[in-house]
Design a protein around this nucleic acid. Sequence first.
DNA 1: ATTTCGATTTATAACGATATAAATGCCGTG
DNA 2: CACGGCATTTATATCGTTATAAATCGAAAT
Lengths: 350, 350
Amino acid sequence: MSLEDLEEKGRRAMPERETGPAGRNAKPTLKTIAELTGLAVTTVSRALADAPQIALETRQRVRQVASEIGYLPDRAAQRLRTGRTNVISLVLDPHEEILSYATSMIKGLTEALRGTPYHLVITPHFSDTPQVDPIRHIMRNRMADGIVFTRTEPSDERVRLLMENNFPFICHGRTELGTAHPYVDYDNYGFAYLAARKLIAAGCRKLFIILPPERFTFAHHMRHGFMTAVREEGVAFEIAREVTLDSGSDDIRDYLFRRMGEAERPDGFICGGEVSALSVMAAAYDHHLELGKDVRLVAKQTSGLFDQIRPRVETIYEDLAEAGLLMGRLLLKRIGGPQPIDEMQVLQTV
Amino acid sequence: MSLEDLEEKGRRAMPERETGPAGRNAKPTLKTIAELTGLAVTTVSRALADAPQIALETRQRVRQVASEIGYLPDRAAQRLRTGRTNVISLVLDPHEEILSYATSMIKGLTEALRGTPYHLVITPHFSDTPQVDPIRHIMRNRMADGIVFTRTEPSDERVRLLMENNFPFICHGRTELGTAHPYVDYDNYGFAYLAARKLIAAGCRKLFIILPPERFTFAHHMRHGFMTAVREEGVAFEIAREVTLDSGSDDIRDYLFRRMGEAERPDGFICGGEVSALSVMAAAYDHHLELGKDVRLVAKQTSGLFDQIRPRVETIYEDLAEAGLLMGRLLLKRIGGPQPIDEMQVLQTV
DNA sequence: ATTTCGATTTATAACGATATAAATGCCGTG
DNA sequence: CACGGCATTTATATCGTTATAAATCGAAAT
């Protein structure tokens, strides 16, 4: 959009192109193989593509030579010619470092991409620009063959834009648009429902839940799960409005410290994030309340963190690496297939 | 190396090339601008590169038209022609998810790359293959213009290989090779020294330090800092050998639980990682030892995590996002400059 | 008037791959 | 023996950009 890229063009110094000692150890190309085998470049290309019209013996010979000289196709050339980039873009806001959220997902994604020609590119989305900007940019300039993003919203502009353009993508979380679209989600309804039931079963009489920001769909799911359990049991409850998982962790801590000091404080807390769970624990600690007795807590766990935390916290696990793996696989499937697939998968609470 | 990429080639279905409703809204190229301005493609190219031999007025006109039609250069074409990829590769082992380590560094790197034409590609390194493989692959196939990696070792093969080939890179941590190379490091000597002094000043009489694996240079730095402080004060000490920051967190916890139960247990712990620090806390908790009284702990903090942890832990901060930012900037500088720069920077303990 | 120069612009050829259409050679058939 | 048909190979053009060398033109110099 801006001329940023454009302006960069002329400013940078030209790096000297590595000429190498001789032309001998030059990077092997199709031409190299063609010369070695006495075939035409086109034939070599098709042979490596395993085109049936090339004789089997020729294919094998070409393959043999290719592997001997360590040929690997030039991605830039392939990309220029075919329009395929072999790139998957993970769009994320680098500032929302919710502990290992991104790391786990990257772990799963790289696992899914392993052994494929696809590369994972981190496309940062800075919060001072519209959410669709990076998406639009990627599509307009064909920066990637597929897009991965998270924190899906009920009427997500990104989903709408990508669907309109029939561009391969997968997101973590669902929309509430009528149209089906590929996604991987976690059963946040189940999480909150289960968490609430656990607390009620343990004897809690006033539940308190810290939800993600309302703009995210999974906040609604959590709320519904929570509300269902609470209504079923007719227990008192409260939904945190002043703070969410997006609040600064200091804000959450301060707020919880205040609430925890009140006489009619809640006795059962549900946290959708690890940081806010720690804040609950900190607030309880600071008021000399014993966790598991005076106050109870069920938290969502997305890393190994809580295994190290004392006192032990009751958690329900969401496997983000698994989600990443699944997302990667579904996206690749979508990219490979000519017609759109609307495949969805919800990871269940364990 | 393997024929993996090669074999993928033929297997995938060809995605239909988006033809668009008409040729009207086709992606603008230099040719488009050339037609609009009546100039030759070459002229447009040079104009956008701000070549002095193009008349100023022409340059301005071209720029104007380019921005009007939203022209952005095709990266594949640029890459094919110039050999420049506009890619920075962050090589990491996706399994070492030491909480937000990678996330923080990615945050800093994307910040450094912001506004430049460079993309950040995550190149996974799986522990079942040699450490230099991804590096060699990137260099051989010109997959990136620069490489970032972490966990540098005293005689790091990666550094050696990159230096030999004069390939732009920057690493987190130093080698002990004689040759100078670009790096960004944290003052781990200072960290351990300071941590030990703090514990001794608080009255600890037997210090215990959990070091990173010996193969990493910063383990040595920490050890020296620790040893210096310990010798200065003539206090008893112990260096964990059975567990390191690389041990599974369960192993660390079990080991510490055992040690913490011994009669002659250490009374001052130093942890170079957040997870091991939590393990120390957990072990103390499980033995009903009071932190800050029976047992003291100084930990390295690389995220906001410890702000939420109770009881409060004394920490010394290492800013990994800052390190990432710095690494990105130094790398870009190195890429821009024709001759190698050996710039180093050590972030101090705060 | 011819030459020379400097300031601009342009034509041409790559970079390495692939899609398209054409060519080659061999076979059996009429 | 000419022919069509089949299997296989090849020539050509192209993706969008940039490096190189050549061309254009008016003005100044001879």
